Simulated assay, not measured.
Amino acid sequence: MESSDLQRRYIDFTSTLFREGFLDSQYTQLQQLQDESNPEFVTEVVTLFFQDSEKLQDDLTRTLDQEVVDFKKVAAHVHQLQGSSARFSTPPMRSLWFVLIRFCDH
């Protein structure tokens, strides 16, 4: 596949993610940190995010699968997910983290 075709597909894909609310200005700011000295910066950050998120979600699932759920642990896992997703979270996702943490505190 030609480089120009890949770039067009990338632009189309990210445009769709912006339009559907999965990406916002946080992602744009991340892109602005990428330059010639580190051309893979965004890819590296996104890859690390997915790796961390997978582990954190597994930890959260194991905690929720316990016979007696420790909601302090659930809140700690949600806080970690919130922190790792800070660069990518859109307002609806940030609201979700807030609601989950408040639920765990009650």
Rank of each mutant, 00 (worst) to 15 (best):
F18M: 07
L33N: 13
T43S: 13
F13P: 00
S3Q: 14
Q26S: 15
N38Q: 08
S53W: 12
F98H: 12
E40P: 00
T63I: 00
S25Y: 09
Q82R: 15
P92S: 04
T63N: 01
E20T: 13
Q57V: 13
A76H: 00
A86G: 01
T90E: 09
A75H: 06
L6C: 09
N38Y: 03
G21V: 08
S37H: 14
L30S: 04
E20Y: 09
V68R: 07
L96S: 09
E20A: 02
L96A: 08
L17P: 02
A86T: 02
F41G: 01
Q66R: 14
L81V: 05
E44S: 11
S84W: 04
F49E: 06
R19N: 13
E40R: 13
Q66N: 12
L33D: 06
H79K: 15
R102G: 04
L23S: 01
F18I: 02
Q80F: 05
W97C: 01
E36M: 08
R94D: 15
D65A: 14
Q82M: 13
L6H: 08
Q29A: 09
L64G: 09
Q26P: 03
Q57C: 14
A86M: 04
L81P: 04
F71Q: 14
N38F: 04
E20F: 09
L30T: 00
D65K: 13
R62Y: 04
L64C: 08
D65N: 13
P92K: 00
D59V: 06
V78A: 14
